[in-house]
């Protein structure tokens, strides 16, 4: 069964599917009930599943994550919504000190199958704290898994995988792509969400992106005079560097793209790993196209911060001309 859906609707359907297949799945977050969340991702679920499955939380992020840990200890499988990327930090302590460590601390006795959904990234003309890309902080923490989809199909399958996981998953949703449409196959999972996937094959340069930047990378591939292979990471932790290496072994060139600041970002880790595993395949230095090392700028200036397809093309050219 294939449907044409937006990312927001695909996420909504994944939540519905997860709630139907497991009565222990419950949704918890700010304004997710009657309102359906500020981005309407939980639209209609409160009406269909009721107060005991879709819970509006008081306005306190540490409280949301901290109580979800207790709910999970009691046997529930909470799916949390943090309203915006910049508001996750009050919950950082519970995520780092408890959520990521309880399974290890209890020698595997206590599992915390909690998914934390976070809309992230810029490009929507928002005020401060509504456009950030904090994924690196979470990918750095042992005990957490980090997923981010890029299109409606990956949104559906990645979110279902996150909820079914017995580990805590930080799930970053590319908010400026919420309304992008694409086909979604509900009957089978076309790709393993824990693996990177090739979304466009090519032979000259491998371009690695994730979340909102996958679309940008595809735009660059359409505009480039070279043949670009575009890889969508999907999983930021664990990192599927084997799939990237397989591609780089063929192309000999790598460009990594993300919105988050470049300094110590995921691009640095990927470059270090590929620099080692593909040392004798690389024809050019690895290029990174990222946000600058500055606080996210006011929205009238955000286009200067966000990597776009032109910046990717410049990086591709330098890789080809090296």
């Amino acid at each position: 069964m294939t449907n044409e859906l937006t990312i927001a609707k695909a996420l909504n359907q994944a939540l519905r599917t997860a709630m139907e297949e497991d009565s222990k799945v419950l949704l918890f977050g700010e304004d997710i009930g009657k309102l359906g969340g500020v981005f309407r991702v939980t639209d209609g679920l409160h009406k269909d599943f009721g107060d005991h499955r879709v819970l509006d939380a008081p306005l306190a992020e540490s409280g949301i994550v901290g109580t979800a840990i207790g709910l999970a200890m009691r046997g529930y499988r909470p799916v949390l919504e943090i309203q915006f990327d910049g508001f996750v930090f009050p919950a950082f302590d519970q995520i780092i000190s408890q959520l990521a460590k309880v399974h290890r601390r209890t020698n595997g006795s206590v599992k915390l199958p909690i998914t934390i959904r976070i809309p992230y990234g810029g490009g929507i003309g928002a005020v401060e704290h509504h456009s950030e890309s904090p994924e690196t902080f979470f990918a750095h923490i042992p005990g957490l898994r980090v997923l981010t989809p890029s299109d409606p199909q990956s949104a559906y399958s990645c979110l279902l995988s996150a909820i079914r996981s017995n580990d805590p998953v930080i799930f970053f949703e590319p908010k400026r792509r919420y309304w992008d449409k694409g086909s979604v196959d509900h009957t089978q999972s076309p790709a393993d969400p824990w693996r990177a996937r090739i979304v466009r094959t090519g032979s000259d340069v491998t371009v690695v992106a994730y979340g909102p930047m996958v679309k940008t990378a595809l735009q660059a591939a359409n505009a480039s005079e070279y043949s670009l292979e575009v890889i969508d990471l999907q999983s930021l932790s664990p990192l599927d560097d084997r799939s990237i290496a397989d591609s780089v072994e063929r192309t000999g060139r790598l460009v990594i793209v993300h919105e988050a600041p470049g300094n110590l970002g995921l691009g640095a880790e990927i470059a270090a790993r590929i620099g080692k595993s593909c040392f004798y395949n690389l024809e050019a230095p690895i290029e990174r196209v990222t946000g600058y090392d500055i606080p996210y700028p006011p929205s009238k200036l955000e286009e200067h911060y966000l990597p776009d397809h032109d910046r990717i093309l410049v990086a591709v050219d330098s890789a080809m001309e090296a």
Partner: peptide, 29 residues
Amino acid sequence: PLEHGCNSYTIVIGNQVLNGVGYAMGCTL
């Protein structure tokens, strides 16, 4: 913790209070 109904010792001051409240919310559910 599940065998004894007694969580692991929590060292970060106050974290366990929220965890306990969440467990109690689960008892209600």
